[in-house]
Simulated assay, not measured.
Amino acid sequence: MSPPSVNKKDTLSDYWLSFVNGDKEAFADFYNQGYNILYSYGMGLGMDSQQVRDIIQDIFIRLYTNSDLINDLYTIKPFLLRSVRNAFLNIKKTENRHTDFEQINFELRYSIITDDIEDTEKQEHLKLRIKNILSVLTPRQKEIIYLRFIHQMDYEEISQIMSLSGQAARNLLHRAITKARENDNNKDLLILIILFIHIH
Rank of each mutant, 00 (worst) to 15 (best):
I197N: 07
Y41H: 13
E107K: 15
D23M: 00
E121G: 00
E25R: 00
L63C: 04
Y41L: 12
T94H: 06
S165Q: 12
S111G: 11
L89C: 00
F27V: 08
Y146E: 15
Y35C: 05
H174S: 15
I133F: 04
M162C: 13
D115G: 00
R97D: 12
I91K: 04
Q33F: 10
D116P: 01
A169E: 02
A87L: 02
E95T: 03
R170P: 00
F27M: 07
I130S: 06
F88Y: 15
Y64Q: 13
Y155P: 02
I91F: 10
S13K: 05
A87C: 04
E157W: 01
D23Q: 03
K9E: 02
K122G: 02
N86R: 12
D184H: 04
S2R: 10
T65L: 15
S83M: 08
V84C: 04
L73W: 06
L63S: 02
K9S: 08
I161R: 09
F149I: 06
N36P: 04
L80G: 01
W16H: 05
H98S: 08
N71M: 05
K127C: 07
Y146H: 15
M162T: 09
H198E: 14
V52L: 02
N186Y: 08
Q160E: 13
K179T: 12
E25F: 02
I112V: 15
L38D: 01
L189V: 14
T75N: 10
L108V: 11
I145S: 05
D10R: 13
G166A: 09
A28K: 11
W16P: 01
N105H: 14
G42M: 04
L128Y: 12
F149W: 07
S159W: 04
Q57T: 09
N86I: 12
L134H: 09
A87P: 01
E143Y: 06
D68P: 00
L63P: 01
F196N: 15
D119L: 05
G34L: 07
S163K: 11
K187S: 11
S2M: 00
R148C: 10
L63A: 04
Q160I: 14
T114A: 10
A169T: 04
H200C: 07
S159L: 07
H98T: 09
I199L: 15
Q57I: 03
Y155C: 05
V52R: 01
N36K: 08
M47L: 14
A169S: 12
N21C: 03
K122P: 03
I56Y: 03
Y64F: 15
A169Q: 02
Q141M: 15
V6Y: 02
K127S: 06
P139K: 14
R170A: 04
S18T: 02
Y74T: 10
N7K: 11
E182D: 15
D119P: 06
E182M: 13
S13Q: 05
K8T: 08
E25Y: 01
D119H: 08
S135A: 13
M1Q: 09
D184A: 06
S83C: 06
A176W: 06
E118Q: 09
N36S: 14
D116W: 08
I197R: 06
T94F: 06
F101A: 03
